[in-house]
Design a binder for these strands. Sequence first.
DNA 1: AAAACTACCTGAGTGC
DNA 2: TGCACTCAGGTAGTTT
Length: 270
Amino acid sequence: MPELPEVETALRGVSPYVLGKRVREVIVRDKRLRWPVLDTIHELEGCRIETGTRRAKYLLFGTAKGTLLLHLGMSGNLRVLPAETPFKKHDHLAITLEGGKQLRLHDPRRFGAALWIEGDPMDHPLLKDLGPEPLGDGFTAEHLQAACKGKTAAIKQVIMDAHVVVGVGNIYASEALFMAGINPRQAAGKVTKPKLGKLVKAIREVLAASIEMGGTTLRDFLNESGEPGYFKLTLRVYDRAGEPCRVCKTPIKRIVQGQRSTFFCPTCQK
DNA sequence: AAAACTACCTGAGTGC
DNA sequence: TGCACTCAGGTAGTTT
């Protein structure tokens, strides 16, 4: 599910309801997420949530005492509901706020995470070695060129490596490579400089456009108001194997790279 | 150092 | 209806 646009959409959706609110109670209904949810999560109780930010696909809710880090994994979503709303299966974490609302983490596959961090969250092992934000100033053509230099790994694998740039998931990796006219199997070190420049631009554009539209929806993602996003309607190659390329009509191909599906147009992406 | 692979988990869809 | 199978948006951690 959540690629970066969905995570950003979730953050924007819940922020108005949680920012400035004090946490009454943290309810752990199932601690078996990617890592066991520790009892330290209850340190959040009594704290006022002062900030809501995102780093890569991690959500950070800051208080004076520490930071709540959430990750939505493959199948997670956040909802804000009246605290008395019956729990659904897979509602693993619930944070009751002053005023009677509750922030809930729902995650069928349980690849998500919930951690309590004291001190600067950017020093946390999960965050300290991450590459630049794709929509930030640090993600430049020069940066990507330096990261690709001499690499034999496929360009798709490289742009999905969080040490190179964060937030480029499986859908948008395929989409951006199509937009830049790059074959996903090409060795990163062999992609020309101008193409890498185009790729930076494509990654920024596709992510920004999807955030604008409220995130792509596949399967179980619902945005904060319960309405699905509509970006899937405009996907260029992802999940379109056998269908005609929107530019040249060549059938879109599906291959497997690093145990993940890749979609591309053999004509437009040389 | 870099690349390849493993592990974690449920649910939807397909074919018989 | 049921069973067996494949596939799915992520990524830390391990092995080669």
